[in-house]
Design a binder for these strands. Structure first.
Lengths: 198, 198, 198, 198
DNA sequence: AATGAATGAGCATTCATTCAT
DNA sequence: GATGAATGAATGCTCATTCAT
């Protein structure tokens, strides 16, 4: 007996996310959210401590959604490191491209607005990055030193992040096939996990 | 030999850029710019049509600055394609990291603020990207089909853009040496220009 | 033997009084009272008609408390008029200084908040003042005319009230010993009850 | 060529003072002041930094006005200490009764609102009180110890303050002649300057 | 006896912009 | 070329109160 989607809290989050994406943090105003939801601005304060609290709730949503996807791949045991890496890269890219609103909130928004977001949440994200590093190490098979692994993982991330942000911001030439670009971005990132000796 | 911005218009742009970087588009307010410059808010309207006009002037500044750097490398004739590519990649990265305020304005800020920015300016940017593509083609030496070249150039760009944006937003683990990461990002992008099958 | 305010009504009055003293009438808000008490704002309306009603209840408390003290002295029969006067003056001063929250509510708060407070309550207060007048008359022993007695009683009151209010508002030079000042204030008021011409 | 009374700044102060007296600090809102003045709330910010600044301007006005009166008496040289004291007491009482709005702002308002008022202004007030003390010492003629003088001056002040505040708050029985009470209050305060030996 | 959800009015403040000078 | 005065709209937020449960 699932409650009807009239649940106010969720409506608020919905409209807030849309406004945030479409118009930015500042113009995502309590009043405008309320007016789209169809309630009073005051009511928002029944569900969120304040604007910042609402924003953090938005972040949480995104984080959770991303982690579920990533962990599903990272924790699979019947796979090779390469398979996991390719899976993780693609999952990350897909998450960003299919949920641009979430991705923007989490990784594109100026850190100014994100500064008070509990750091342990971002630490949880970094944690996944470390697991990616571990798989890169495994894939390369040469037991590389930890600093090198860290660099490789960061490079993979920046590469994927750049792809998502330019695509989401529609800065990439429209004549370019997005799917191709994404496939190639995965492969480009995978190159980081090739055994050395090239 | 930066002349002391006796010129009011330049002072305005100066302070506007600082405010924009430090506090974001919304809090870069006409009044606050004016107060830092030491004139009236009204005066800003003598030099710029309105806030949006001022913002576009800021964009122009950044574009010019970047193009000067890129063209210097791209137009050098006594160099190999590889040298030019490496130079362009590094120039782009350095520009972003040394002028985060410009880079943010041009490529990190949400396109909503940029929407009314004259498209020919962005076309000029895309133009440089095509020249990068040309050098990639030269470097690979196999006369690849144009679509492939476009993809490769885009991949290079996303990779560099990701590096800059995550570094500028300080999302990369602080323990990671920035210079190393930048060097490796250049090499990672250079890999795109390797002759195939090697 | 103050019973632990198990009673919700008493808890509300308690917290309301504290808030009133600490932050003033305006910031003594129903929500904040409720949150300190640990119940809903709505619940306050079960015990008080509205904020004004709650405030009047606070007044009543204070009035009762003061009257008990004053009457104890005024109604003692085995005492001289001088003793009673000195006792009343001191009781009044002590009440104000020991219960600044009550005193503020009753006599320092702007009458605007008090305007709708039932006048018979203030009449009860005036009643005590008349009894003070009677004792002054007795002490002076010259059967003075009633108007003069009224003036003397008023003077005593203003004198004590001034002492309390400046002390409570902490406007008196901190280097001045409060106890000394209070003692002297009593004596200064007692001077009004000296037989004339002496 | 005195400017017409349309001077906005003064109108604002006027209406603010009225509202403050009639309805208290909180309900003296920027919007309500503006609406009474006949301008926008925004305009108030052209003349005062913020609400607190406006309030301080109100305080300053009152302080200045009071000091002019007091100093005129205190600095007169062809007078006896007794004459000066009587004059000062009466000036203070008259100021309070004729400018209840100023007096309330300065001495009756809860210190909460006054807390950020520059302390040197209050120090200037205390300074006058010390001069009163000096005259009390002179009048008593027995070269009393400084602490005693301080107490006497404080007693005089509390006495006058009490008179003003109860009269202003209309708590004194209406049947009592105000002028008589004021005269007697002066005399009651003067008693503090009587040579000892009683 | 108590709550949860909701509201409408109000608050101080900041903003981009205009206009007469 | 620059200003001072002014505005209307918007912002985040808090308030007392009501009502159905």
């Amino acid at each position: 007996m699932p409650r009807p989607a009239t649940n106010l809290r969720e409506s608020i989050l919905d409209q807030a996310r849309r406004l945030l994406l479409a118009e930015g943090y500042t113009r995502m105003s309590m009043r405008r959210i309320a007016s789209r939801v169809g309630c009073t601005a005051t009511s928002l304060y029944l569900y969120f401590k304040n604007k910042n609290g609402l924003f953090h709730a938005l972040m949480d949503e995104g984080m959770d959604k991303l982690f579920v996807g990533l962990d599903h791949v990272l924790e699979s045991t019947d796979t090779t490191p390469q398979e996991r890496l390719r899976g993780v890269f693609r999952t990350y890219l897909d998450f960003g491209l299919e949920n641009p609103e979430f991705y923007e909130v989490m990784f594109l928004l100026h850190p100014r607005h994100t500064r008070r977001y509990p750091p342990e949440k971002y630490r949880a994200a970094r944690n996944r990055l470390e697991r990616v590093g571990a798989d890169i190490a495994l894939a390369r098979g040469d037991d590389p030193d930890p600093a090198e692994v860290q660099v490789l993982a960061a490079l993979a991330w920046t590469s994927l992040h750049g792809t998502i942000s330019l695509l989401v911001a529609q800065r990439v030439d429209a004549r370019l096939d997005q799917e191709t670009l994404v496939d190639r971005a995965v492969e480009h990132a995978m190159a980081l996990a090739l055994p050395p000796q090239s």
